[in-house]
Amino acid sequence: MSDTPVIHGSTKKQRYESLVENLYQDVYRYAVWLCKNPPLAEDLVQETFLRAWRSLDSLQNDKAAKAWLFTILRRENARLYERYRPDLVDIEDQSLADSDDQEPDQKMEREMLHAAMNRLEPEYREPLLLQVIGGFSGKEIAEILDLNNNTVMTRLFRARSKLKQEFALEPDDDET
């Protein structure tokens, strides 16, 4: 189970504010990777929290809040792409621009890994991001992606195998 904080507060507004306080940064980070466009990600996050506010009463278990928000976000992103194919920017360029304090080797490694993550097929990248950003268990990821747990664990294994292969130039573990 991910470490979603228990949301305290007796009123709807307090519950909502706790959600924002504890989760908005993770939701935004996931949104950036999902739509690959930071300004669009910001809008998606606002849309997500607007919908969350309106249906907050349907959230029975506060421990499931993060998975619930991520699911809303994924749905909003899918709605967006049903109607639009906005120009995507390479988030690699934007995010790495702020990391000039890194050593050149470190920076190059990061760039290689970042590029490798961008090249991952969505079916592998999505569970990986849910695990790393959301801290979700395999079972939670399975519920969010509507897959079974074994499939999720296999995809997580393959995602990291592909990254290791590209990033560290090691033999593909997937073939072992």
Binding site: Y28, V32, A41, Q94, S95, D98, L113, H114
Partner: peptide, 8 residues
């Protein structure tokens, strides 16, 4: 890497 995008 996933933590890099600055939060607006």
């Amino acid at each position: 890497i996933v933590s890099e995008p600055p939060i607006p």
